[in-house]
Amino acid sequence: MIIKELKILRQHGIQYVPDLKTAVLTPLFRGRPVIKEDPTDQETEKIKKLCPSNAITTEDGFGIDIGKCVFCKECALAYPDKIAFTNDYKIASNDKNNLIVRKGDSEIKFNENIVRPEVRKLFKNALKLRQVSAGGDNSCEFELYAAGNVNFDMGRYGIEFVASPRHADGIVITGPITENMSEALQICWDASPGPKVLILVGTDAISGGMFADSHAVNRKFLEKYPVDLYVPGNPAHPLTFINGVLRLIGK
């Protein structure tokens, strides 16, 4: 009997990702976009029409805001010689401006200067988070759940999701923050003891995504409090989330 179990174990092999920082994802993964060449004005107009979530910006030249991008790849399919999506998953940043990808960018930059010193000091070795699904569609929630499973096991860095905001050092928001969840989110934020971090996961949370203009969305909460980390992706990959948090806490 035990031999059978051992066989299964051997068959499954090592399940966990040995190194979360250097793991390479499948080329099919839609990660950081690259702009090989700026599109012409005519093309830009076409791309803008293609984009379902207004992720294309033309201020200071052509750029893709991955805080708004839903990673549908429509633009890359239409102009494969101008835009491509790589499998680079390290796309989390603490500065919203760094989320805009322009020609020649080879990584999403992380602004070390604006990290609050107490975040590095207090949460480096242990960070307990409370997740609030503020109108989320469960895709990001599933990925965050996966971040704690045997494969990704963010617990190895002392990062963990807890059941009550009373035990939490920070709040992780997914979803576009609907009107119905805005008050609950506020209560949850108030119930969590300071100092605390605020992390937005997924395009919906960062910009509202597809629902940015909906009247059922109330994003006033985000105007009140500074956001410590943006984790783009639709949904965000567990590795994106874990690497983003690790950079935030300086590990």
């Binding site: 008050e183 609950a184 989110l185 209560i187 108030d190 119930a191 300071g194």
Partner: peptide, 14 residues
């Protein structure tokens, strides 16, 4: 340290 006093946590039920 700074102390905050808030209502009892009720799962943010409204």
């Amino acid at each position: 340290r700074h102390t905050d006093i808030g209502p009892t946590w009720g799962c943010a039920y409204t």
